[in-house]
Amino acid sequence: MRRFDYARAEDVADAVRYGTRRDALYLGGGTNLVDLMRETVAQPAALVDVTRLASTIEGTETGGLRIGAAARNSLVAEHPAVRQRYPALARAILAGASAQIRNMATVGGNLLQRTRCAYFYDVEGSRCNRRSPGQGCDAIEGLNRGHAVLGTSSSCIATHPSDMCVALAALDAVVHLAHEDGERSLPLTALHRVPGDRPDIETVLRPGELVTGVELPRLPLAARSTYRKVRDRASYAFALVSVAAAVEVEAGIVQDVRLALGGVGTTPWRARHAEETLRGQAVGEPAFRRAAQAELAAAVPRAHNGFKVELAVRTVIGVLNELTREEA
């Protein structure tokens, strides 16, 4: 790890002032960034500690919920409003990492965590376009069982690792940002970039731009949402495939649906094709399968990750079956 300067921000203005310094990075719980620095994937000259900024979780005037970026993942999952009104989010967080890590990791940090692609991490021994643009990608022809099948490009097939973001993507979350030039908000689904030919540019954030919070809109159907994660180990493992879903059914017909996938995309993958296919359809496995297949039609499998297409279809069907069991 390269030596760096450390500063603790007391408020947002303080943070963005430090944060616009060259080679400065914001530091949340450190559960990803400290590891990346130790591996020399990240080599910031300065860290701006933003863990003492807003961490409150409170209702909004429009009936939603606003979560401060410094809120620890565990406290979000534990919050009564999240458990009651957005259970998919609680379940997604609880399916990620370990209790210790969830106690450290912040919401802002979780949004910006980076891929666990082994070639991305292997600074000394492997080529990676995400780490070093133009270098080449050793994953495309290499060991890619864990890699993405959606949103990939010929330069990068790295999977976005977050569970929490998958639920946020499904639940129409909005991300609040701050910069020296002012504040703005974005849908969570607009935050992350698919790699294209610049996999090194992972988000639409401007240099020095800070995530200050996440807002969940009022979304009644989310009260019956869930998150299912399939992994190689029963706990403490990244997803092979995960599904966040919420469905509203009336008289056996899907009125509205939110669906997002994890483990299969280069970004937290909102499954809009599947949603469109499903709206207005009769509840049941045939419709669920058509919807899932519509989303996965664009999949580009590689040598070892082809199973994710079928696994994602099955998991979507399983989750939708579970959510609509009483209506069927």
Binding site: A118, G142, L143, R233, S235, A237, F238
Partner: peptide, 18 residues
């Protein structure tokens, strides 16, 4: 010939839940 999962995150050993 390079080992690509040289970590306890990527080389899975049984966790309590297993």
């Amino acid at each position: 010939g390079r080992i690509m999962n040289p970590s306890l995150a990527d080389y899975h050993v049984p966790a309590h839940a297993d």
